[in-house]
Computed example of a mutant assay.
Amino acid sequence: MMKIISFGDVHEDIKDLVKIKPDLETADLIVLSGDLTNCHGKTETKKVLDAIKRYNKNILAQYGNMDMPEVDDYLTKEGINLHGEGYVFGDVGIFGCGGSSPTPFHTPSEISEADIGRFLTNGYSRVKDANWKVMVCHTPPKDTATDIIQNGMHVGSQTVRDFILNYKPHVCITGHIHESRAKDNVGDTIVLNAGMFRDGWYIEVIIDKKSVSAVLKSVA
């Protein structure tokens, strides 16, 4: 069995880590889906990672659109970068794409739809033979419960949605849209957005030989 604990949109607010200490300490892997900082770089990212490492040193992470590009380089140097990469742990393959599709706000790390497709494909190629596949994409798939902003518009990525339908990962962990905490499905893929970490939610994925479960959990 493999237990993954995941959250994103940390934005340097790590006060709730202690509230999920039991899950952090018993997880096989901690996955950070993006936006570790508020338009900051390596120094602030290291603070977030060091805080998590007090509970569990097994971490994979990727930058989000609110992280400076140097965060991507730093995570690569640390050997834990999910962006455009893939890792296999026994029967489980995990791959990712950070940054985000273009926004109206011109945030530090936005990439094109074509780049999103390219990075996801690169990561998937490294895990394609795994029995179970977990996709971690900071930008949510379009037209789901996980990509709705306050005015009701769906602002996710069509590329991400198409990728899920074509490659059928078992789970997609996403974020980016803080107000769109939700669990949904695209085809047979479970899609989860835990929203901002400081709002008190995170994701638990349990995978064994025969099944996968993925749920939103509250720190309360």
Rank of each mutant, 00 (worst) to 15 (best):
V136S: 02
Y124Q: 08
W132R: 11
K168C: 09
G156T: 06
V215K: 13
H106F: 15
N58K: 13
P141S: 05
D199W: 06
E204P: 08
T174P: 02
L82I: 01
P141H: 04
K21F: 08
N151D: 15
N65L: 06
I177Y: 00
I203R: 05
A214K: 02
K53M: 10
D50A: 14
V212N: 12
T139Q: 08
G34M: 01
H40R: 15
M1V: 13
D199H: 09
K183N: 02
L120Y: 09
I59L: 01
I4K: 07
V171H: 07
T37G: 08
G64Q: 09
N65T: 10
E85K: 15
V155H: 03
G175R: 07
I5R: 01
A51P: 04
R181L: 09
V160I: 04
S157P: 04
P22Y: 05
E12T: 07
E25C: 12
I94C: 05
M1C: 09
Y167D: 05
G93P: 02
A27G: 03
E110M: 00
M68I: 08
K3C: 03
H83I: 09
D16C: 12
D35A: 06
S218R: 14
K3Y: 03
C97M: 12
S100K: 06
I14R: 03
L120D: 08
P104Q: 10
S101P: 00
R54W: 08
V134M: 06
G90N: 09
V155Q: 03
